[in-house]
Design a protein around this nucleic acid. Structure first.
Length: 420
RNA sequence: GUGGGUAUAGCUCAGUUGGUUAGAGCGCUAGGUUGUGGCCCUAGAGGCCAAGGGUUCGAAUCCCUUUAUUCACCCCA
């Protein structure tokens, strides 16, 4: 009986894994230049962390978490995102006593029980980062600048930075009242989802994509136009900074984020042509979250980006991987005696950091050389009793067909010194 | 949770109005006289035709159910 992979998960095979590794390397290189340090945290946490961190009313917590009881009866959840864990770790490890701000990045898988579609999986890869201990707009600007540089390094085209401010708690209380007033007599003409939103989360009313709803919400008041003085100033500073640094962006008043902890600045990098799930990277400020999770009042801002979506966008931009790894030499052999000395040479090169190949399937010479060709070996050498006895062998360049006679003793030294 | 598409070899796909033992290309393995690969030739392995049920003398093909997968809604990275 064949056992298949669980829904919404996938194997990342050779040919694709290199793309992941490449992006991860570029990411960590850039982030470290901006002073971020890597953090690793558990795949699972106490369920309560996400209930309190991400927010009890969010879809993520209400219907998308992988939650189970462990053998001692504790409620455990597979992480649906990274921010809550980083904040938990910040508090738990007393990072508020380290020099502020704390800048951390991570490279994780995350888990959400959702219906699968293009760009959305139940297990997916995220790169993300958090800045804790800075309430300045400069932190917001630096993060967006860094991301812009990162996408530039990957030569991604067609990504658009959208920013908005969703204000602080106070702005939002006032704004929700305004929205309720605006929509109260218009609800009959709207979809069922919006009727729910009206009660549960009025801010969501303005980004419904249904035609009849968007017509109605077109003239609704926007949060961005109704911020308190402080929030307004913060947003102005962000806009000024981005402009000064020549980071392309658009203000999108309809961006609202689905996690409860966001306040003030929110942003998304949106791609074209990768399907309906087109937000490659999203983030925002969450100044109340540390306190919410039991720490001292500490501001924070962060983002996460979806690797699957990012790689999809890169491929749309015509991305080609730098170079495939080829064996520098393939050792072919005839007979046991030759195999043993070929094996010794191959392993010597391998321990010197060079990739080379030798057959381990006891195959014919022809099959060995076919394999060398499939692996794109740069050179080959055939060793038999004759070569071992006379200490002479032919090294062949497999693309130019040139051959060179060398002493068997000198083969590894020549390759190590690049004097073939 | 709700819709639509799809399901035949490892991959890409043929398969006639229902008719014997289900095919091709690619890939894989082995050969094509002594110890040089790629091109070419030959052979082999590999399928419960997604699963279960029904109609029929006979089903990959028609009907029903289930499952998987995919795209979209909701929502999110």
């Amino acid at each position: 009986m064949k056992i298949s992979i669980p829904k919404g998960t996938k194997d990342i095979l050779p040919g694709d894994i290199e793309k992941y590794k490449y992006v991860q390397t570029v990411f960590s290189n850039i982030l470290e230049n901006f002073g971020f340090q890597q953090i690793r945290f558990p795949v699972f946490e106490h369920t309560e962390l996400f209930q309190r961190g991400v927010g009890d009313t969010t879809d993520i917590v209400q219907k998308e978490m992988y939650t189970f009881k462990d053998k001692a009866g504790r409620s455990i959840t597979l992480r649906p995102e990274g921010t809550a864990s980083v904040v938990r770790s910040y508090i738990e490890n007393g990072m508020s006593s380290n020099p502020q701000p704390i800048k951390l990045y991570y490279d994780i898988t995350a888990y959400r029980y959702e219906n699968v579609q293009k760009g959305r999986y139940r297990e997916f890869n995220q790169l993300g980062a958090e800045v804790l201990g800075s309430d300045s707009a400069n932190a917001d600007i630096e993060i967006m600048y860094m991301l812009n540089a990162f996408f530039g390094k990957l030569e991604i085209k067609g990504l658009q930075l959208n920013i908005n401010s969703i204000g602080c708690k106070n702005c939002r209380i006032k704004y929700n009242e305004m929205l309720k007033n605006y929509f109260s007599d218009k609800l009959d003409g709207m979809c069922d989802d919006c009727k729910q939103r009206y009660l549960r989360n009025p801010m969501r009313l303005i980004d419904c994509k249904q035609e009849k709803c968007s017509v109605i919400s077109k003239d609704a008041p926007m949060l961005l136009d109704n911020l308190c003085e402080e929030c307004n100033k913060h947003f102005d500073n962000v806009v000024k900074g981005l402009s000064e640094m020549k980071i392309p962006f658009v203000i999108n008043k309809r961006i609202v984020r689905g996690l409860d902890y966001y306040i003030r600045t929110v942003f998304e990098f949106i791609a074209e042509g990768i399907g309906a799930q087109d937000t490659v990277c999203a983030g925002g400020r969450y100044d109340g979250l540390v306190e919410q999770l039991g720490g001292t009042d500490t501001p924070g801002i962060g983002f996460a980006l979806g690797l699957e979506r990012l790689i999809g966008t890169m491929e749309k931009s015509g991305f080609k991987l730098p170079n495939e790894k080829k064996p520098i030499i393939f050792f072919a052999y005839i007979g046991d005696k030759a195999y043993k000395s070929a094996r010794k040479m191959a392993n010597e090169l391998r321990l010197n950091g060079m990739y080379c190949e030798i057959d381990i399937n006891e195959r014919s010479l022809k099959a060995q050389l076919k394999y060398a060709d499939k692996k794109n070996a740069l050179y080959n050498v055939v060793l038999g009793d004759n070569e071992i006895d006379t200490n002479k062998a032919l090294i062949k360049n497999m693309s130019t067909q040139e051959t060179k006679e060398v002493s068997v003793d000198s083969i590894t030294k020549r390759i190590i010194e690049n004097k073939i």
